[in-house]
Design a protein around this nucleic acid. Structure first.
Lengths: 350, 350
DNA sequence: GTTAGCACTCCAACATGCTGAGTGCTAACA
DNA sequence: TGTTAGCACTCAGCATGTTGGAGTGCTAAC
């Protein structure tokens, strides 16, 4: 039995119908469609074949058919008409994103909001990973008699800082010296490289004169480097799920929200996805997300650093529309962060 | 008709029963309680009086009584036994909070998580407002030929920075000069004070020699100061609301989540509350939160800066327990940020 | 290969009746 | 005069039964 054109057409009709209505699709409903000129009985025969082939399922005897994960995958890969985003939507996105281009963080957070508004789904966005960013310089600044601030500046302008409680008294000269030596040693190296090197050794040879201080500094320096690698996750549109009939069941809504609000795990899922426009459906996802579809795409900062955003929702999702919104937003972001490249601003909070 | 002791006792029983079960409380149920030695009929009479006085309501003829906002208020103010937190809970909190004292931000976020776990409610925490923090110094750092990073350091060690796209070429000397002049002018002044001053005037007189640069710097400086005032909001336990029968209704759950995930508005509500341990119930809250109770308390950083955390949930809330958890956590935080005072660390992200 | 027809299945919606929990009122009691 | 027993009444919730519609699968005819 092979997937001939007629079967494909019927399958496509079922999937797109189900995406619209979330109701199992029956043979009579399909036969009424202008693009399908077959009697219900014929359609039933084809449906029966499609079910045997694993593309459809059957909630109960007298219900219509529901697409399987396999059907969604086929739909996304071959059957879906890739909707071009209407001009008005493009304008709305461009306008809303443009309103606030000052800071990467804020812009990314804002992009997530726009995305959830446009798709009526739960959206998310993560900031770029800095592991390959190169150190520009390192600075120690006095705060009070026992505290200094360590500041690491990357070539892309990203600044990370931590306060360090010094175990021994320090002088301004000490700080200047450490700043110079460390900048000299580490400038141009990638954060990830530094984290695999034995930094303590470098310190030992260079900073014998202030051994009392180096002890407090090394662990803080490593921690600050690690902080530089943190990726921020922004999410928006949680309450959109209540519009979807699949989450009328409180237990399901709860499960979904629990999975999705577990920031650490969810960030992990996002960071570890493949690059580019990625759609994963049902079983293709991790255990907790088996009932969901996930769409992500990447944006670039300065043409190099890569961040990511997307949506999560039921498998019954308007893949075409959503995909084009996501693509448009990521393109837009990449452009924003290119033109204003060095404008990327950094904040520091507690 | 006055609130004699018997009425109070009955009211108290009704409120605490309703808090436990979320079911309207009937006269027979009450008469079975060991501490109430009255027949159902007598209790009915008293209930009828209490209803007339506005302390109780009646979902329908043949249902038990439900406390009104007025009853909750009385309960919280007079009737509630303030539960002492069991030693084991104290230990759990102390342990979980202690595990991570490195950074204010992280600790505060973590405190919110602990709070929602302990109370099974939606919790939140905001970082301190820095408007009265004093500037320690100001630094301009080169990034690339047209970009510099502006960094403002407060006396409490908080660092805020932004990247500035320069409208004219600059030299390292320019930056050093600006750093010195601005630090000299602004050191020791509070952020809020600076924001009300005419900063541009200061620049004009001092920086004539680099007028081409000052134009890019003034607006960025003001924006960075404003950034220093941003308060971060952390929330946790969203999915806890699904355990509560009052949110079995999808529409209610949706409303609640929408209100609570509106970060800007909710932050505003929190920032503008009175200081100290505050409980607001039902009508005492803003329109959107009329069905909720809100409990907040403050923590101190260095004995000065004030942050805030708390929970939000249905009016039917275990006020005693929740209050003592919140108090214990805020006390604990204040202590953490006191002992480790200068250890407060700052991060910088995009 | 396609289709009409038919028997069959199952869900959803509605009606019905019953039970239990609760009330308010009245009259009797201490 | 305050308390209580008793009674009629109300209402939500549950179980049960009924019906109609939407759907299927199969068979036989075109």
């Amino acid at each position: 039995m092979d997937l001939n054109e007629r079967k494909l057409k019927i399958l496509q009709a079922i999937v797109s119908d189900f995406i619209k209505t979330s109701e199992p699709v029956g043979s009579r409903t399909l036969s009424k469609r202008p693009d399908i000129d077959l009697s219900p009985a014929t359609i039933r025969n084809e449906m029966s074949d499609l079910e045997e082939m694993g593309y459809l399922t059957h909630p109960h005897t007298s219900a219509g058919r529901v697409p399987s994960d396999k059907a969604y995958r086929l739909y996304v890969d071959q059957l879906m008409k890739s909707a071009d985003l209407p001009e008005e939507n493009k304008q709305e996105i461009a306008q809303r994103l443009g309103a606030n281009t000052a800071e990467l963080d804020q812009t990314v957070e804002h992009a997530a909001k726009v995305l959830s508004d446009m798709t009526n789904l739960v959206s998310f966005a993560i900031t770029p990973n800095r592991s390959e960013s190169k150190i520009n310089y390192i600075n120690f600044l006095p705060v009070d008699s026992s505290t200094v601030v360590l500041m690491i500046v990357c070539e892309d302008g990203k600044v990370t800082n931590s306060a360090i409680k010094m175990s021994a008294p320090y002088t301004e000269e000490n700080l200047t010296f450490m700043s110079k030596v460390m900048t000299h040693n580490f400038k141009g190296k990638a954060v990830s490289t530094l984290l695999t090197e034995n930094i303590a050794a470098t310190f030992e040879s260079d900073m014998q004169s202030l051994s009392g201080l180096a002890g407090s500094v090394v662990p803080s320096f490593i921690k600050t480097l690690e902080k530089m690698l943190n990726v921020d996750l922004y999410m928006d549109g949680y309450s959109n799920i209540f519009r979807l009939p699949e989450y009328n069941d409180i237990a399901k809504a709860k499960n979904f929200l629990e999975t999705v609000t577990n920031k650490d795990e969810f960030t992990n899922v996002l960071v570890n996805r493949e690059q580019g426009l990625m759609i994963t459906i049902g079983d293709e996802n991790a255990e907790d997300l088996k009932d969901c579809a996930l769409i992500t795409a990447d944006y670039k900062v300065n043409g190099k650093l890569v961040g990511r955003l997307g949506v999560i929702g039921p498998k019954r999702m308007k893949y075409g529309e959503v995909t084009s919104v996501i693509k448009y937003i990521t393109d837009n972001l990449s452009k924003t962060f290119e033109i204003e490249a060095p404008r990327e601003e950094e904040d520091s909070d507690e």
